[in-house]
């Protein structure tokens, strides 16, 4: 199966260096070939499992994190906010 590595990389926000491209392409195709071993199945499939329902959380406020703790791992901070390159949209 031919895989559009550049398209997938773009979706995943990865850039693959040109010199690694061929190797990557080959590896991905091998892995996808392995995955293609799965036969088509008629088995009914639903992503819900009502026999194992989720416990919901009560709507009660708990303290938030202090801002210095929240931002202590951020690469760039200004005026209590995280800084990113200018967003146009």
């Amino acid at each position: 199966m031919q895989i559009d590595i550049r398209h997938i990389a773009k979706l995943a926000r990865l850039s693959i260096e040109d010199e690694k491209m061929e190797k990557f392409q080959h590896e991905m195709e091998t892995i996808v070939a392995m995955c293609e071993k799965l036969p088509p199945m008629d088995d009914a499939y639903t992503a819900v499992d009502p026999s194992n329902p989720m416990r919901l959380r009560p709507d009660q406020v708990k303290p938030s994190l202090k801002r210095d703790q929240l931002l202590k791992n951020a690469p760039q901070v200004q005026a209590g906010c995280i800084v990113v390159p200018k967003v146009v949209e």
Partner: peptide
């Protein structure tokens, strides 16, 4: 009272990054 997936207060107009 709280956000959808955590117990932070759901409030508008607070100081930046204070309800996280």
């Amino acid at each position: 009272a709280t956000k959808i997936y955590c117990s932070c207060q759901n409030v508008f107009g607070a100081e930046v990054n204070s309800h996280c």
